[in-house]
Every structure is written in C-alpha cells, then in structure tokens.
C-alpha cells in the first residue's frame, strides 16, 4: 500500500448527503469531550467548592417579563396566520395582530403605568404597524401573513 492510498476517499453519490454531517458529528463529539475535560470538570469542582455558581442562578431574573415576552410572542405567531387566512393575501393578519401584540408588550415592559405613558405606547402600537403594513404590503406588495 502506498502512502497516497491513505488519502483516498470515495464518496457514493446517493449517500453523499451524510458524508459531511458525519465529519461534523465526530468533531462535535471530540470537542465536547475536550470541553468536559478542560472546562467542565474544573468548573464543577469550583461550583462544589462554592467559588462559582451554576448558570441561571446568578443575578436577577425578571420572570414576569421573560415569560410574558415568550407567551405574547407565541400567541402573536399563532394568531397571525390564522387571522390572515380570513383575509387571504392582504397582510391583515399581520396588521390586526401586531397592534395588540405591540401594545401588550409595551405595557409589559413599562415600569410606570400612568396615562401619558400608556397613551404614548398606544399610539406607537397603532401607528407603527399601520405604517409598516401600508408601505410594505400596499406600496411594495410584499407578502405578509
């Protein structure tokens, strides 16, 4: 066997979609082991000795705002195409759902719920989607939900 044979690679076209992912899988595995060895174990040792803490347990965590954002966004994404199908290809699903979504998100993020702030937020929630919808969906005929 010659040395050049060592570098010979033949790829079966019908299986070629798996060739590169396989290489990446091996590299990922090797890297994961190295990280465990050089980073993970020393890290855990420090956690045990109390010098460092596990992720997620540091700093303040405003669960209301994080989960609120997630919940609102999921509702927004689910309702958009649903409402959109009622008015096919007009982008109204986007427009009609963006207004309450933006308003709710703003209110969630607000720290002072006084009249002036709410008015500002309400106007923003109204104007921004209408402008976006009008320019993009109407003027440029971009497909929106």
């Amino acid at each position: 066997m010659e040395i050049s044979d060592l570098f010979q690679v033949s790829i079966d076209f019908s299986q070629s979609h798996l060739f590169f992912p396989r290489i990446i899988h091996w590299l990922l595995l090797i890297m994961a082991l190295m990280i465990l060895l050089f980073e993970g174990i020393p890290y855990l040792r420090e956690v045990r000795s109390g010098r460092k803490s596990l992720p997620f347990t540091t700093g303040s965590f405003d669960s209301k705002r994080v989960f609120g954002t997630l919940l609102l966004t999921i509702l927004y994404f689910v309702s958009m195409p649903y409402v959109g199908e009622l008015f096919p290809n007009t982008g109204l699903g986007f427009l009609l759902m963006s207004i309450p979504y933006m308003f709710a998100l703003s209110v969630l993020y607000l720290h002072q719920h006084d009249r002036a702030h709410l008015l500002r937020v309400g106007l923003n929630a109204l104007i921004a989607p209408v402008v976006a919808w009008y320019i993009l969906a109407k003027l440029f005929a971009i497909t929106l939900p």
Binding site: Y101, M102, L110, A125, A128, P129, A132, T143, L144, P145
Partner: peptide, 17 residues
C-alpha cells in the same frame, strides 16, 4: 418599551418576507 416591540414587529416582517 417602545423600541423593542417595534424591533419584534420588524423582525417578523423581515423573517416572513
């Protein structure tokens, strides 16, 4: 509180389009 909802909305537009 004004900027982030706008960013979210525009991200949605961009991603969908």
């Amino acid at each position: 509180y004004v900027l982030y909802p706008i960013i979210m909305m525009m991200c949605v537009v961009g991603a969908y389009a």
